[in-house]
Design a protein around this nucleic acid. Structure first.
Lengths: 244, 244
DNA sequence: CGATTTCTTTGACCGAGGTCAATTCAAGGG
DNA sequence: CCCTTGAATTGACCTCGGTCAAAGAAATCG
């Protein structure tokens, strides 16, 4: 059945995890990491569409993406959903729940993925003595905040082409950071999700891809996107902003 | 001269500060707060336009707004600025600098204001034993993240009227939370700043205000806005989203 | 206090992108 | 293997909001 979480058969915590260099909890030596063991569940498998949490859920865990990808969104009163972000390995999910113990956004897997769950719900004060961890957490949250700000900048620029170009360049940067090939991008989100994320309608996104294909900037085969002309993509992303 | 910081004449730390119930550092008893004293400079006065930090500045302090208001923004390569947020008493500024020690956004006062500066730059690990404070900091950052998400939702909806309506309702909520009158709103930002924040051009914002005035929803006299018909404002903010 | 600057409003025009609708393509299930 | 279903593409049309321009209202300064 879909939508199920399977416990890992015999994964042994963080040892061997590829994401260690990027991970909030992995940046530290084994001894330190063991201090977290009682709070950390590693390698939880999520099938596509598996929801980590919904808006309104009680805050229980902070999730660290280990592999795969996720999307997060807010649901409006009128049933309309606004995609807030796409999340790759190393990203932390669920931050919005810390504030008052309730999630205000939702998150689900876009493909088969793994996450680690970090229990923070009860007495976060007991992180005392784990200040090394706290510092890491602060940085992770600061990073999440920066990403939101980048997103806001994209949403502020009006030209649709520019938005998509900015998004693709940002994605390339993220892929590169993860050591993945950054010329052959495999999008894990639908046109609808991407459109929502960019503040456009899906038809527009589709047309833009066709256009950029036509003009030899990209090679687009559905969700397989190859960047043919990175320089032109840069120009498009930096085009003079609408005067706003 | 403008743009100057004046040290407070004789303010004695947090005692007597109106923002205590909302403040990150103020929620705790005097004894605890004294633990922070070496890291905390309270009641720093900022004249209008005084910049707390610029993009690229080395991260030194986290700022807590005590009175007045601020705006934060990112400057793009082409000189265009995207307003990221407006900040009222109790808000924390400078979070984006924690990540790697450099600010990626800028912030400045919109009016005569006061902030408290909290030194976090060097060895944040030394916050050990201040876990009560760390927990507060986490919540403050979570709150900032929620606000960014609300902003993203506004930017995602296309209809300009809806954006402004959502913004005004959000502002009302914030004013109420601060114990200020929420029917007579005094905007502290220019039309241009508000337009950038909402992803519109200033002419559009100006026209929207005129329209809402015309239709008896608001009374607008430049930056003095009175909400005449809150119910209608709610309807406008919740109107069916563009299908996107 | 008059002069200059800055902020805001208003009008006329028009194009980017949203709307509606139909078609094509790919994948998964019985 | 075909059929169903959902995702993506493409086209025709039209509106919302951006552009350009000018004038009025406040604020600032010498």
């Amino acid at each position: 059945m879909r939508h199920a979480i399977h416990n890992p058969p015999g994964e042994a915590g963080c040892s061997g995890c590829e994401q260690q260099p990027r991970c909030l909890a992995g940046r530290f030596d084994e001894a330190r990491r063991e201090q977290l063991v009682s709070r950390l569940r590693t390698g939880i498998r999520c099938l596509p569409r598996y929801p980590l949490f919904h808006a309104g859920d009680r805050f229980r865990y902070l999730y660290i993406v280990q592999s795969g990808s996720f999307k997060s969104w807010r649901l409006e009163r009128n049933g309309d959903q606004q995609v807030l972000g796409f999340h790759l390995p190393g990203d932390v999910l669920g931050i919005d729940g810390i504030r008052n113990g309730t999630h205000t956004s939702a998150a689900q897997a876009l493909q088969s993925s793994r996450v680690c769950a970090l229990s923070l719900a009860r007495n976060p004060e007991s992180l005392d003595g784990l200040s090394w961890f706290n510092a890491g957490l602060l940085k992770a949250m600061s990073r999440a905040s920066s990403q939101d700000q980048e997103h806001l900048v994209i949403m502020g620029r009006r030209q649709a082409t520019q938005r998509l170009a900015m998004f693709l360049r940002r994605l390339r940067r993220q892929y590169r950071r993860l050591g993945w090939p950054d010329d052959e991008l495999t999008l894990t989100m639908s046109r609808a999700d991407l459109a929502s994320f960019l503040g456009l309608v899906l038809e527009t996104v589709s047309r833009l891809f066709s256009q950029l294909h036509e003009s030899q900037v990209l090679e687009v085969r559905r969700r397989r996107v190859t960047v043919l002309d990175p320089e032109r993509l840069r120009q498009l992303s930096e085009a003079e902003a609408v005067s706003g």
